[in-house]
Amino acid sequence: MKTRYLSQKIGFSLLFLSIVATLFFLGTIIYFVAVRGAGIISWEFLTSVPREAMTSGGVAPAIVGTLWLTLGSIMIAFPLGLACAIYLCEYSPKNYIVNIIRISINNLAGVPSIVFGLFGLAVFVKFLNFGVSIISGCLTLGIMVLPSIISASQEALMAVPQSYREASFALGATQWQTIKKAVLPSSMPGILTGVILSIGRVAGETAPILFTAGTFYMRGYPKSIFSECMALPYHIYALMTEGVHPQQQKEIAYGCALILLFLVLSISMVAIIIRQKQRSSAQLR
């Protein structure tokens, strides 16, 4: 009787320790980046261009570049992904082919991002001759998140009770009217969560833009979608591995890391709040 109680005590303490350790490690990372990065952040850092071979000035072109790449890739991936999910859930016949398609999409979501970078290099940069440019980067990142957007949207669509659709059909609505008026509104929070989480992922992704969009140093802002651009994550990497003033560059990298962390974490927080809200309202129903 005693050992039974003891093993429970030890076991539960270990579980408690593991979550404390997890939160501690993650907290440490955020703490270091926040404390060391906060010193360098200023209005000038956020709004001016880099100067004196990256040792002073700001990182505005990198922030702008990240926004361009993120918005562009979501504008490509969201319509395609949602349409694909709607097709697979609502229109396509339910057979093994659709099942295979679903499994392949799940698999593609797990393919390393650097492999998508290779694809972007071969197709957009070289074959379509867009060069290293914003458009190549957007297309590469868009295709990278396409599988996750499709799966998230599919999950959300499948969670809509079949009775909603039946009720709508029973009122004489057509398939499209049913999708537009019954299925999409009730699955929207789920779809949005998936999309916003993808936005966060795209904003922080580095590997796919290494050879499709990123450049280390720019004095100004990108002129068109066919020019290369700076991006926060790539800039951190470049500051840490290239250049000749490691000490000053490290300081700037801290600043970039803090901006990026803030950007990505607040984006995913929005997504998760939307989902929590939806879950609690679903429980009330």
Partner: peptide, 15 residues
Amino acid sequence: IEILAGIPSIVYGFF
């Protein structure tokens, strides 16, 4: 924890 799962890999690399 889900929000922390979104910390970009470059930040881990930098850290």
